[in-house]
Amino acid sequence: MAHLNIVSRSISLIILIGLFYACNYNPKYKLPYIGQQTQEDGSIVEHTIRPFQFIDQDSNTVTNKTFGGKVYVTDFFFVSCPSICPLMTKQMLRLYRHYENNPNVLFLSHTIDPRHDTVGRLKRYADKLGSVSSSKWHFVTGERDSIYSIANDYFIAVQDESNNGEDPNKLIHSGKFMLIDRTGHVRSFCDGTDPKAVDHFVFDIDQLLKEKENPSR
């Protein structure tokens, strides 16, 4: 009898420990820092998104300060996209609805066709999606070169062989969603055209939201 008692006690102890770890944020499982580390003054610096400045659908200036202290999800698309953009926008809209009431999550969609995607066109696109707040989901345009160079920082492959925008079939971009943390580091990504991958991405976003603002490393 005593033997059974010990077994049941140890089992319940294991379950309790399991519950404790399941309910608490465990730094062991924290998301990795993606990208190459560099050394500055003897300390290791993780890959960081460089400062940027774009214009969003309300003609407001959007910089990296807009996203300071916030977690954000970013992608690259264009309005007259003939292939995967509607799939991506649909999944992004799903994420937007999921985090609609969470002020710590923002969204940033870059157009890779700034020649055609003016502020007005981005505004119409955002309005058509239905009640999308421009302070939460920024559709941005800007100088072509700065958009294509910031894509490198996000590890997004983009290519423009459209012959000055005449053939949109040759504007090529990856369909990845990238997750950026409060201090501008890339922490996770997923295939934005795959609903199941986006389901899993939600766990990553939740995990990142549980991190302290300045994680001690």
Binding site: P86, L87, T89, K90, L93, Y125, K128, L129
Partner: peptide, 16 residues
Amino acid sequence: CAGCHMHDGTGLNGIT
């Protein structure tokens, strides 16, 4: 078709 109209045919509200 699925690129715009989605794999399940639900489209994208207001756009496709």
